[in-house]
């Protein structure tokens, strides 16, 4: 296991010994992973490897059977809203927007933990209320601007094209002012241009000082983007290191791609298509949460 950290930076996320069992199935087995500030870390692996399950363990959606997850030094309680409060935001593999709310409202919901106005303040329209609402709106509009959705602020989320829905999920996650952003297959279903735009967006997010942990099947995307890549196979982390190293690793090639793919870019796509098809059948319920 190769762990390469380039510069001495603070550790944002430290997961150690995370194990998740569903009955007899061990979906995640004893995984350690750290993410440092200013880093973009990739998490790859074949379908059903346990990537999404690992995310769910990090964000408190699942209570890991064993192991612990610490954010900036404090161990996180396994409650999703407390994890978000602490500073980890996420997107979902199968988009989970508030479909019947507008784009702006979706982002405003993301700001929930960073605003304090309670029911009384809303009912009595206490002095701070209006100001807080306006600030929230301004902040949300900024994020929509940032993700390029400002023109659609008043559309219902369900009416956005697919690529924009993914962007909106990112905007919504950013609204909670996270220190770490977890992206679960952010480019799934995107065309090449959109994927490129997503890359730019993720770099821009990193430049804002937010560390990113991203699951993705698109190898080229991962290669361009990530400082470090971890590979999960059947719940176990088999390799971790710089993208080029991981890409060349035989175990990865064997486990993840099945065939060597250097010099044959078409292969990567073919493997991806295969993976997608297999996924559609195998993980119907698996990635629901």
């Amino acid at each position: 296991m190769t762990t390469t950290t380039t510069a001495p930076t603070t550790t944002v996320l430290a997961a150690s010994g995370v194990t998740m069992r569903f009955g007899g199935l061990t979906a995640v087995r004893d995984v350690d992973l750290t993410v440092n500030s200013g880093e973009i870390v990739g998490l790859i692996g074949p379908n059903g490897a346990g990537k999404t399950t690992f995310f769910n363990c990090l964000t408190g959606l699942y209570v890991p059977t064993e192991g612990r997850v610490a954010y900036k030094g404090t161990v996180l309680p396994p409650k999703p809203h407390l994890v978000t409060q602490a500073g980890i935001a996420r997107t979902f593999q199968n988009i989970r927007l508030f479909a019947n709310m507008t784009v702006l409202e979706n982002v405003l919901v993301g700001r929930h933990t960073r605003t304090k106005e309670g029911l009384w303040s809303a009912l009595l329209r206490l002095p701070g209320f209006k100001k807080a609402e306006e600030e929230s709106r301004a902040r949300a509009m900024e994020l929509l601007e940032f993700t390029g959705l400002a023109a659609k602020a008043d559309h219902l989320a369900r009416n956005l094209p697919y690529g924009e829905q993914r962007k909106l999920e990112i905007a919504r996650a950013l609204a909670s002012e996270p220190g770490l952003l977890l992206l679960d297959e952010p480019t799934a279903g995107m065309n090449p241009q959109e994927t490129r735009a997503a890359e730019e967006l993720i770099f821009a997010i990193r430049d804002k000082g937010i560390a990113v942990l991203v699951i993705e099947h698109d190898i080229r995307f991962i290669m361009n983007l990530c400082d470090r890549v971890a590979v999960l196979v059947q719940g176990e982390k088999i390799v971790e290191g710089p993208a080029e190293v991981v890409q060349a690793d035989e175990r990865v090639i064997a486990a993840y791609l099945g065939t060597p793919f250097e010099g044959a870019p078409g292969d990567a796509e073919a493997a991806e298509v295969e993976a997608a098809e297999a996924d559609a059948q195998s993980t119907e319920e698996g990635d629901d949460k």
Binding site: P80, A89, V109, T113
Partner: peptide, 15 residues
């Protein structure tokens, strides 16, 4: 409304 729409996503947004 967010809870009504999708409770899991709502809790993941810190609610």
């Amino acid at each position: 409304v967010a809870i009504r729409e999708d409770e899991t996503a709502a809790t993941a947004m810190g609610i």
